[in-house]
Structures are given as structure tokens and as C-alpha cells.
Design a protein around this nucleic acid. Structure first.
Length: 507
RNA sequence: GCGGGCGUAGCUCAAUGGCAGAGCGUCAGCUUUCCAAGCUGAAUGUUGGGGGUUCGAGUCCCCCCGCCCGCUCCA
């Protein structure tokens, strides 16, 4: 699908996923659970293929670096649950566990219990001015704005002061935020417990509280020292990890695009600060090409630099953040994030060094220099990647029996080939079984004897199987089979002993 | 979190407050020599869940859950 206009709805894709065993709603027999999904046999195969391809291309045989030499990346699989101090150091706890108020205009976020308000005594219809508690400048600013609004000087006796959290919805609508001049820009105070909590040990208490990781990245930073000490790696190098992460999203939406449990494929690339910029460019380009190599077309992929006001807390400085975005049916004609390439500076290692009191620097023997490496982080969504592959593959075709087919790239298709006897007699099933046994040693191959050949082809169209090999009445004598191509529906005749070579050439 | 819409078999949908059905798919048998063919048969339902009104609820009312859309959110 390289058209800018989508020719199918998300409902059709969700329905196909359910009907053909790609993705099911989690806990479906109990009415489901918002934000969670189960991968069926074909979905699991597709996701695993994507995952394995990433690991193969990034870790086992990583890309060639800008200087023409192989870069160095090692793998890691860290625990989902870590010491809670990890998330204090990373900034995930603290700013996000208290009720927060956002300003829609300035995008500032305030702790709701740290914001107070002033208003004119006895005036319920005028404007209310918020300021930050204990911040004299903020209070003065609020007083000035009030004074200007009522067009006269005010004394403290004229003022009513109250906590922001005590305001009603109506009052909030006439409130001016601490850093803005417009009214009604503040959101209602909200609890941002975006990390899932659980506890360790038999007795539940505040001391036993732990969190499910909201990103896989921190596990890599925690083990930076261990990897440097044990693996004889030299900066620049990368540590890669694939695994689940959990975010208690306010609004899970758009199928598996924003779910509460999802999988990430992340690389933390450690380099010298002076080289961060050129590594950043290297990774933006490398990762963009990679997505295209697995079948996402150029038209539907977009590289987009974040505006400065949408940068994450760890990426305020440096090269910024690039999104690799995909045009999903539910975002079209706009794009949704597939992968973020972020320059995290040395924020994380510095914070962990500070909180843990353990040295997390790197000593460069050649330059005789000690420093905390900067980090370029290509962080890809495995779940979102799987969704992008599904969206990209879904191709309506009113002409054929299935009305559509899934045009997966042969290398990542959950079923890579099917072997069919044209009919279930005259020795054809036996030949089919033999060919299937041979092919399944190397590829994901199915065989099916039952029902008409057209019905079996149609099923393979829905599953996205690129090649069907059909044994007919002539095969026994001429030692040849018919190959049926999924995308074109065209057929060609090839020698039985050339089927493996045919597959090897195309996958 | 707010507002709107929706929820009946695997899918698409019927059923005036009165026996829960059809088509497709799935499975079995026969048939079938290249694109969901045909014949015969079978399985599949707590009508999303719970409560209420009623002689009687898929249908009316209430609560909850889930999905979709628009806001909000997305560090």
C-alpha cells in the first residue's frame, strides 16, 4: 500500500487478524481487558520473524559503520522488575506519581499540590490566578495579572487564596496558569501513575513496592559497567535488548498501536560526546533503511525531527530526537511513531552514578581520558512494527475470492510456502508430503490436502503466504510442480528438485 | 478522564416485548485435475456481564465491561 489514501478500514484489518489467528483480544472469554492483546499463531510467527530479523541485523551481524568497519553491538536481557531506586534515578518516579496539572498553552507541568490561586475577595465571576507555592516571583506575577485585569491596584486584604486542588471545574475554567496570560489552559489535576506497581515478598508494604519497567533502556544502563568489565568492548559500542515494557496508558487506542503491555527493541549506543552528532545521523539513516528492507515502502515511512517543545526530559540538549514514523490507516494521512532515535546525552549514566554512588564512567586507554559516554538510542517498537507490517501487507482485491491478500515480504511472512496436492488421490498427497518435509527443514511451510485448490489458495492469500507449490497428475512423470504467486496469482512450472533453490533465491 | 456510537454463532448481519435464525466460514464424508465449485451431513450461542420492569426481555430501564469515533493523554 503506497497510496496516500487508505483503501481499507482498520476494522477490516482487526477482523482479519481475529479471523485468521494473528491477534486476539486478551482475556476475550471474560469480556476482554482494555489495552492488552494476545498474539495468535500467525501473529506470533510474524512478530518473532521481525524480532529475529532485528537481532540478526543489529546484533549478530551489525551494520557497517561510517568508517567502513564493523560496529560492535552486544546483547542483553535484563529483568523486568528492578530495584525501585532505578526509576527514581531515571525520572520515572517523582514527577509522575503525584497529581499533576498541565498547561495546554505552555506545555508546562506542575505538581497540583504545589500550585495555589489568588482571586478577588467576594468575586465569584472574575478570573482566578494560579501561582507556584513558595515562589515569590510567581506570586508577584499572579498579583500583577489580577491587578491588570481589574484595572486597579490591590492589597493583600483584597485577596482570597486557596489551593488549586480545591477549585471546581467551573473555577478552573476561569483560571489563568502560572506561566500564561490566557484563561482556562490548565487541565484538571490528574494522577499520573503510568508505571504498573506490584510488590515483592509475601508482605505488601511501601518498602516492598516495585514497578514493571516502563522502558527496556534502563536495564541496559544498569549493566553498562558489567558489560564493559566483562566483554572487552571499547567505546563506541552498543548494547541491544528486546523485551516487554509496561505503561498504564490513560487511553489505550488504535488496536495494538498504544497498548499497556508492549515490546521494544532498543539499542543504547555509547560514544564520546564529540562523536554523538555523527553517530546520531548514522543511526537515523541506518534504522530508516532497515524498516524499508523488511517491506515498508518509502512512501509510508517518514523521518521527522521533534520540535523542541516535545522533547523528552532526557533529550533537552544535544542532537534532539528523530521519529521514524509510519502512515497507519488510523493516522493517515498523518503518521504514527514506529521508532525514536534519541540523543540521550549522558543523562542516564550520570543519574545512575549519582543515585547509586557507583562509578559508571569509561576510561579510554588510548586517549588516556575518563568520561561518561553519550548515548544515541534507536528505540523501536516491536509491537508497533508488527502492526505496521500488517497494515502494509493488507491489500484489498475485489477480483479474488478472499477479496484481499496479505502482501508480506517473503522473509518475514508467517507462512513462507504451502505445498498442495491438486487432489487427494493418485499419489499426489504422498509427493506433497515429501516436498513439505524437505522444505520445512529451512522454512515455515504448511501442507493441506483437504478441499478444492481454489479454497486453499484463498486461505493462503489471507495468511500472506507468498508461494504455493501444487503437485498435480503430471508431477509423478515430469517431476515438475506449479508455483502459484500470491501477489500476481500467476503460475509457473518448475522442476520438483528446484523448489528449495527457488525458495532460497527469494527469501 | 470527558462526550458520542456500538455489542446476537468464527465473520457479516436478521429476529413487532412472544420458539434465537440466515449467508459465509469451520469440520466430516462424497466429489473435485489449478483459484472460496457441487452434494450430504455436523459442530458452533449464558444475545458482552450483572441487576430491574414484565405472565414473558436479544428487544424496555439501571450499573459494569469491551470496541470504535472525537477531545484529553502519550514521560
Amino acid at each position: 500500500m503506497s497510496d496516500t489514501t487508505q483503501t481499507y478500514s482498520m476494522d477490516e484489518l482487526v477482523s482479519l487478524c481475529k479471523r485468521r489467528g494473528f491477534i486476539f483480544p486478551a482475556s476475550e472469554i471474560y469480556g476482554g481487558i482494555n489495552g492488552f492483546w494476545d498474539y495468535g499463531p500467525l501473529g506470533t510467527a510474524l512478530k518473532n520473524n521481525l524480532r529475529d530479523r532485528w537481532w540478526q541485523d543489529m546484533v549478530k551481524r551489525p551494520p557497517i559503520g561510517p568508517d567502513g568497519n564493523e560496529i560492535s553491538i552486544v546483547g542483553l536481557d535484563s529483568s523486568i522488575i528492578q530495584n525501585s531506586k532505578v526509576w527514581e534515578a531515571s525520572g520515572h518516579v517523582g514527577g509522575f506519581n503525584d497529581p499533576m496539572v498541565d498547561c495546554r498553552e505552555t506545555k508546562s507541568r506542575y505538581r497540583a499540590d504545589h500550585v495555589c490561586c489568588i482571586g478577588l475577595k467576594g468575586d465569584a465571576t472574575g478570573q482566578i490566578y494560579a501561582f507556584i507555592e513558595g515562589d515569590d516571583d510567581s506570586l508577584e506575577s499572579a498579583k500583577k495579572k489580577l491587578s491588570k485585569y481589574i484595572k486597579r491596584d490591590i492589597s493583600d486584604d483584597d485577596l482570597d487564596t486557596c489551593a488549586l486542588t480545591s477549585l471546581s471545574t467551573d473555577e478552573l475554567a476561569i483560571t489563568v496558569g502560572p506561566d500564561t496570560k490566557s484563561v482556562g489552559t490548565l487541565t484538571e489535576p490528574r494522577q499520573f501513575n503510568l508505571m504498573f506497581e506490584t510488590s515483592t515478598g509475601a508482605v505488601k508494604s511501601d518498602d516492598s513496592k516495585v514497578y514493571l519497567r516502563p522502558e527496556t533502556a534502563q536495564g541496559i544502563f544498569l549493566n553498562f559497567g558489567n558489560v564493559v568489565d566483562t566483554m572487552r568492548v571499547k567505546v563506541p559500542f552498543g548494547i541491544a535488548q528486546i523485551g516487554k515494557a509496561f505503561r498504564n496508558e490513560v487511553t489505550p487506542r488504535n488496536f495494538i498501536f498504544r497498548s499497556r503491555e508492549f515490546e521494544q527493541m532498543e539499542i543504547e549506543w555509547f560514544c564520546h560526546a564529540d562523536e554523538a552528532e555523527h553517530w546520531f545521523e548514522f543511526w537515523c539513516e541506518t534504522r530508516s533503511k532497515w524498516w524499508q528492507s523488511i517491506g515498508l515502502t518509502t512512501d509510508n515511512i517518514l523521518m521527522r525531527k521533534h520540535d523542541s517543545d516535545e522533547l523528552a526530559h532526557y533529550a533537552k540538549e544535544g542532537c534532539g530526537t528523530f521519529d521514524i514514523e509510519y502512515r497507519f490507516p488510523f493516522t493517515s494521512p498523518n503518521f504514527g511513531e514506529l521508532e525514536g532515535v534519541a540523543h540521550r546525552g549522558n543523562y542516564d549514566l550520570t543519574r545512575h552514578q549519582e543515585f547509586s554512588k557507583k562509578k559508571l564512567g569509561y576510561f579510554d586507554q588510548a586517549k588516556n581520558e575518563r568520561y561518561i559516554p553519550h548515548v544515541i538510542e534507536p528505540s523501536a517498537g516491536l509491537s508497533r512494527g508488527t502492526l505496521a507490517l500488517l497494515c502494509e501487507a493488507y491489500t484489498p482485491d475485489p477480483e479474488r475470492a478472499s477479496k484481499m491478500y496479505m502482501a508480506f515480504h517473503p522473509s518475514i511472512a508467517p507462512i513462507q510456502a504451502a505445498v498442495f496436492p491438486l487432489v487427494g488421490k493418485d499419489g499426489m498427497p504422498e509427493i506433497a508430503h515429501k516436498l513439505w518435509s524437505e522444505l520445512r527443514e529451512r522454512w515455515d511451510v504448511v501442507t493441506d490436502v483437504k478441499q478444492s485448490i481454489g479454497k486453499r489458495y484463498a486461505r493462503m492469500d489471507e495468511a500472506g503466504c507468498p508461494f504455493c507449490f501444487t503437485i498435480d497428475g503430471d508431477t509423478a512423470s515430469d517431476q515438475a510442480v506449479t508455483v502459484r504467486h500470491r501477489d500476481t496469482q500467476q503460475q509457473e512450472r518448475i522442476a520438483l528438485d528446484q523448489v528449495s533453490a527457488f525458495m532460497a533465491e527469494r527469501i
